[in-house]
């Protein structure tokens, strides 16, 4: 005898519905947890922070220093990291796994530890540090130290992203370009680079954002002059929350800029894929 629909056990459907509600609840709570502090920070201190930019020369200089050092570190990362990323994505060679592990290392160690490691290499007592000092380059306690710290902690992010971008470009495009008369460099410049460009730019934006938000390694290597992350800590430690709030809000707004750029890039890519 056929069982009427109304009498079919509905337990699985109920269980499915309960799981959906639980998942939605958990996801919403996590989103709230991630977004609420940043939103609160910007709402509470954003306007004040932006207004403070006009009358707080230290904050202005700190912001300028942060942008300049992060940009320099990113440019260095792109120039030096692109060949590494390309080789890692294209060539199978002995030691590739070791090289990859070395590149991931800065992401895994605590950033103050990274700062100490950099201090050991570039400090005045070290061979490299003293050699650089003799040619007039002081790393510790200078913008160069900030750039070094930023490069150390964020370059692996660029290399990883650029490597992915190159891996997405089928090597046969290069093969065709080679048979059309391009040497290896020309085919890279005319074919691979344009095809990997979006991924590389996205990786550079992530690197820049990571560099801007770095604190642990910089505080060891160069406390002064202060980048925004150090300044917000300094104001908090010296004057308390109210003084630190506008600086922290400016920092959060600065971090939102690359996020917006990334979103725009992704939107562009989605649009082109759907063609």
């Amino acid at each position: 005898m056929a069982i009427p629909d109304s009498e079919v056990p509905s337990r699985p459907r109920l269980r499915h519905g309960a799981l959906t509600v639980l998942a939605a609840l958990g996801g919403s709570l996590l989103l709230l947890f991630l977004a609420a502090p940043v939103a609160e920070l910007i709402v509470s201190g954003g306007a004040g922070g932006l207004a403070r930019l006009g009358r707080d020369p230290e904050l202005r200089q700190s912001l300028m220093l942060t942008v300049m050092t992060a940009t320099t570190a990113t440019l260095l990362g792109v120039v030096c990291g692109t060949p590494v990323a390309y080789i890692l994505s294209r060539s199978a060679f002995r030691g590739r796994a070791v090289l990859s592990a070395v590149l991931d290392l800065p992401l895994l160690i605590p950033h103050p530890v990274a700062g100490i490691a950099l201090l050991l290499v570039f400090g005045r007592e070290s061979a490299v540090g003293s050699a650089l000092l003799t040619v007039g380059l002081r790393v510790v306690g200078s913008p160069i130290g900030i750039i070094c710290a930023m490069l150390f902690v964020s370059a692996p992010l660029y290399i990883s992203g650029a490597r992915e971008a190159f891996a997405r470009v089928d090597p046969r495009y290069e093969a065709v370009a080679r048979t059309l008369g391009d040497d290896a460099w020309r085919s890279f410049r005319r074919v691979t680079l344009p095809l990997a460009r979006r991924g590389m730019v996205a990786a550079a934006v992530v690197m820049w954002a990571r560099a801007v938000s770095e604190f642990g390694a910089i505080v060891i290597l160069t406390y002064n002059p202060k980048v925004v992350s150090i300044l917000s800590w300094d104001r908090f430690a010296t004057f308390g929350l109210q003084e630190a709030l506008p600086v922290a809000a400016v920092m959060a707004i600065l971090a939102l800029i690359p996020l917006t750029v990334l979103r725009a890039l992704r939107h562009d890519r989605t649009a082109s894929v759907s063609l």
Partner: peptide, 19 residues
């Protein structure tokens, strides 16, 4: 190297440069 061999190559899927 491929660029000095004087040989053209046409793949089944064309591999037209999408940019």
């Amino acid at each position: 190297p491929p660029d000095e061999r004087g040989a053209g190559l046409v793949y089944q899927h064309g591999y037209l440069f999408p940019h």
